[in-house]
């Protein structure tokens, strides 16, 4: 069992979650993860880590300090990311997923990274 198994399980057990990935923030490569068949995990990992990095740098430069959570909402789903210590926990979910619950779960799981 990997070091991230409990964090992944805590997020993926929620309804509507299609994937949960542990990603290296700097290079956007998947460290560990769990995903439904057909989810392009490499793309979600690379692009979400990139978005998270960009958001962190931008918010720092704008004087808002470090970013701890990022949500990207789209027409047919949402991508959430919470980071700590150079690792980003990424969740890909359908629109019907409970955002409030997922956010809390992701932040809690990220706290243990």
């Amino acid at each position: 069992m990997s070091a991230f198994a409990s964090a992944l399980a805590a997020v993926t057990r929620h309804r509507g979650v299609m994937a949960c990935l542990v990603v290296a923030e700097e290079d956007g490569i998947v460290i560990d993860g769990s995903a439904q068949v057909g989810v392009d995990t490499a793309a979600f990992a690379a692009l979400t880590a990139s978005l998270y990095r960009k958001a962190s740098r931008a918010s720092g430069s704008a004087g808002f300090g470090q970013t701890s959570f990022c949500e990207l909402e789209a027409e047919r789903g949402r991508v959430l990311a919470a980071g700590r210590n150079g690792i980003v926990l990424v969740a890909v979910a359908e629109s019907r997923a409970n955002l409030g619950l997922l956010r809390v779960e992701l932040l809690k799981a990220a706290g243990g990274l």
């Binding site: 958001a55 918010s59 470090q66 701890s68 959570f69 949500e71 027409e75 991508v79």
Partner: peptide, 30 residues
């Protein structure tokens, strides 16, 4: 500084298959 985040999201959406992005939320220290 922050407009670039939208550009990044637009690029990501081309690969995600989730349609266009409708909202981004960032929680920062301040």
């Amino acid at each position: 500084h922050l407009s670039g985040v939208g550009d990044e999201a637009t690029r990501a959406m081309r690969h995600f298959g989730l349609g266009a992005w409708t909202r981004i939320a960032l929680e920062t220290e301040a």
